[in-house]
Design a protein around this nucleic acid. Structure first.
Lengths: 259, 259
DNA sequence: CAGGCTTTATGATTCAAAGTAATGCTTCTG
DNA sequence: CAGAAGCATTACTTTGAATCATAAAGCCTG
């Protein structure tokens, strides 16, 4: 593959992960190339297949290109808690690959397409191009933020609020990678999954869906969510989207280089 | 400050953050120096003082040297959810400093001592010494992991299990920085705080403490927790400590340097 | 040392969410 | 096309945690 070919192909490469990164960093064409070169293979996985299994080592960073997945933990008593629902642009293996062995599993909620690169390869690049290390940091921070939101959700919000918040959050992340319109989006996952994400039982979640519908805040047709009163919904959910800061661009000073 | 003086002082510098970092990376003396040089000042803050306030910008990385703190969110209805309790070695401003404005507050639960460095300064160093960028990534991942544990805790564990898990987790983190013995530790925070961390009411949390006590799993004397049946406690809590992987040490290849 | 404040402890009551179960609707599959 | 499986929905029961109430015990602080 020549540099020219790569340049063209990178121009065409509109992977959701790139959209994610551009939120907080300006990527040069060369950097997009580097990132693209890191991808070892593309992977298609069918619905219900586990991508990462709790207790086993995983050392890849897999960028979700298409489809939904969920990071979850299965407890001894058979209960399942979904840590977060993952959409295009999210990364499988963050944080799992940074542990001796994964402590959570990841399952494909729909058929899914991944772009896989090895963590070791990525780290190697970080040594030469420090900006990649920072990107990884920023992504990890976003990951942490998303879990933190879920903690607040489950810990101190009422079930309706939780559901509203969940819908708004997913929507926001889909908008970011251009996978949804301003007021509606496809949510191709079952209520059982959502209930495990929100720490509710299926019947109760169903009631909460009904509540949002009867209160005229959303409509659902064929697993497509449409926001009717987005303002009211945001208010109900205490939804305040967090904006990531951009990575500061710093010119190393001469004397710092010596120190 | 001469290099020699700094070297000596760094040898004596046993900040908890260094212990944290050594979990997953071998720090050379020079790197410890660099890290130490990043610290702009030490700060002592008294109990109950807010260190970070939701809605305001914060752009520091403050390493906790002594004392306990909590990252929390206050909701409109007055309810508070504590995202995590922070102990020596933890970092205030991770993740808050990576956002345009913090979305959580951080409060000192005890009198506390901090080592403060600016995020910008740290990032500047990352550009020259990529290993620092990776450290930051690893720390952010640990942060995410700790939140994820809390999600599982609150979402799908029973109140007793939650409490047991919480105690074991805090204990593990204290051991890491040498602030606790094998079977006991000081927990200088009120039950109100713990209840806000676990998403329970104070009376109910109190009952759960009573339960652990009457079942002979712990004793509490003067805010010092002692594990009696640590095995049984771990079993009850489904506690499985996650071990971070070490940062892979990669030698950049010649041809990679050209690419 | 007294008085006020915080913290821990415990009981009684209420209410919300889990559990259980049954039904209809859709979609997959042989 | 028929049977099966999966999913959404509703009704009913039970459980368990929040809430309210109170009191004892520390502990700062004037």
């Amino acid at each position: 593959m020549t540099g020219v070919v790569r340049k063209i192909s990178s121009a065409r490469w509109d992977s959701p992960i790139v959209a994610r990164l551009r939120q907080f960093i300006d990527l040069g064409a060369a950097e997009v190339d580097t990132l693209r070169a890191l991808i070892e293979c593309e992977l298609s996985v069918e619905r219900r297949r586990d991508l990462v299994v709790d207790g086993y080592e995983y050392s890849k960073l897999s960028f979700i290109k298409e489809g939904f997945a969920a990071r979850y933990k299965l407890l001894r008593n058979g209960r399942r808690q979904i840590i977060n629902v993952m959409v295009p642009g999210d990364i499988i293996g963050l944080p799992g690959s940074f542990l001796d062995q994964a402590t959570f599993s990841v399952i494909a909620l729909t058929d899914i397409k991944l772009e896989v690169c090895s963590l070791e390869g990525f780290v190697a690049v970080c040594h030469r191009q420090p900006r990649f290390g920072l990107m990884l940091t920023w992504l990890a921070v976003q990951e942490a933020m998303s879990y933190a939101d879920r903690v607040v959700d489950i810990g101190r919000r009422t079930p309706v609020e939780r559901l509203a918040h969940f819908l708004l959050e997913i929507h926001g992340r889909l908008v970011l990678v251009g996978a949804s319109t301003e007021t509606s989006f496809d949510l191709p996952i079952s209520q059982e999954v959502i209930s495990d994400a929100l720490g509710l039982s299926v019947p109760h979640l169903n009631r909460m869906f009904a509540k949002l519908r009867t209160e005229g805040l959303i409509t659902i047709t064929d697993r497509r969510i449409q926001f009717i009163g987005k303002k009211a919904l945001c208010l109900l959910a205490h939804f305040q989207p967090a904006r990531v800061a951009r990575i500061p661009t710093v010119q190393p000073l001469k004397h710092e280089l010596i120190a």
